[in-house]
């Protein structure tokens, strides 16, 4: 049972099988399921409320920053894979070159940390408190009924 497929050929076979399985699944359900669409059913789900606008809106910029930092780090990690497999053959030299490469990466990370790019927006809790002025005003309000002129005394 010899054939000419390379190992990546098998990967392709797996992908094709994956896609076909999903296709067969969809086909089976298409044959069995009912199909009775109406306007209400096809509207976007918003917990039963009327849909307000589109959801294709501007998004929190933090997510894009995370994506950018991820790309930098991921590319660096990719470069480290070949290093990790062979550095032992070069002894101290191999170790130090890897260390230098990692050092540049770590300096970049410290810079991002210092700049606050790794901070996520956090809600600032508002703790209710009373200013001294407000306390005084409240005391005045509470004392007011006492200071009201007594009708009996006015007579």
């Amino acid at each position: 049972m010899e054939n000419q497929i390379t190992q990546f050929g098998y990967v392709l076979i797996f992908m094709v099988i994956g896609v076909s399985f999903v296709g067969i699944g969809f086909l089976t359900s298409w044959l069995l399921r009912p199909d009775r669409p109406n306007d209400e059913k096809l509207s976007s789900y918003e917990c039963g409320e009327e849909v307000v606008g589109s959801s294709w809106v501007q998004f929190n910029i933090r997510f894009y920053v995370v994506a950018l930092i991820f790309i930098l780090f991921d590319v660096e990690v990719v470069f480290l894979f070949p290093w990790a497999t062979v550095f032992k053959e070069f002894g101290t030299y191999g170790f130090l070159t890897g260390l230098f490469f990692l050092g540049v990466l770590i300096v970049g990370m410290l810079y991002e940390w210092r700049k606050g790019d790794l901070e996520w927006v956090r809600p600032h809790p508002v703790i209710p408190s009373l200013e001294p002025k407000q306390i005084k005003a409240r005391q005045l309000r509470e004392e007011k009924p006492v200071t009201e002129p007594d009708p009996a005394a006015a007579e």
Partner: peptide
């Protein structure tokens, strides 16, 4: 059950 379920694609999608 899932195979028999109606497949819904929202209008806005």
């Amino acid at each position: 059950k899932l195979i028999q379920k109606e497949d819904i694609t929202p209008k806005a999608a």
